[in-house]
Amino acid sequence: MFSSPFLAETGAIAQFAGRFFREGFRPRYEVREFFHQCYVVGYQSLPMVGITGFIMGLVLTLQSQPTMAKFGAEAWVPTMVGLTIIREMGPIITALVFAGKIGSSIGAELGSMRVTEQIDAMEVSGTNPFKYLVVTRVLATTLMLPLLTVLADGIGLYASYVGINTQGTTTLALFINNVLSGLTFAEVLPAFFKTFFFGFAVGLVGCYKGYHATKGTAGVGAAANSAVVVSSLLIFILDLLAVQITGLLGFN
């Protein structure tokens, strides 16, 4: 019969996702662990995400300013940077950084728990490790990435404001007005909603890779590595899908 490791893997991940939906919304609910994961996944990623967001905003501004000045459209820099950050750069860069930081750590953590039988030990203790480890993490990444993205967008826009003020002056109020003038709900909401899917992808792939790690320490490394690779790829694919879908819904 026709067999392909790629398809097998895709099928397995889909099955894993199915299990998440089957088990994730039935008691018992691991509330404490969920909050702890939110803290780890969300709050502790903030510095990293904040720094990348700041640099993203600054660089975008400083890069686009000369070009825009050439066309005499310097006044459009806040609008353009705001649109770029909120629609695309913010979500995608935050998600990629998040995949690098959280995807790998989840992959490595669950992977090492798997190979040292800690997951089995949980099962034996009468805990459903899938709920305790996987559901909490996937939920945490799904809910925290949008928040991180919003904050990264905010920080990035502030950096853009700072960047504009290194070349000339603008007031914060004018800057905010300029940014808002380029935005509508149809731009903000799809960009916001797609980050839920990014977060879900990062958490799910990280957990899948870790949960099914084999072959000792090398397996842990491989799990962490492929968690990042696969979830980054998935983020781009989802982004493409998001563009198509928002286009179909007529939001573009």
């Binding site: 090492s112 728990m113 039988e117 800690q118 089995d120 030990a121 034996v124």
Partner: peptide, 12 residues
Amino acid sequence: LGFLFQSNALYD
């Protein structure tokens, strides 16, 4: 039931 793992399997 109680189960003692050969590898201990302590949550590290």
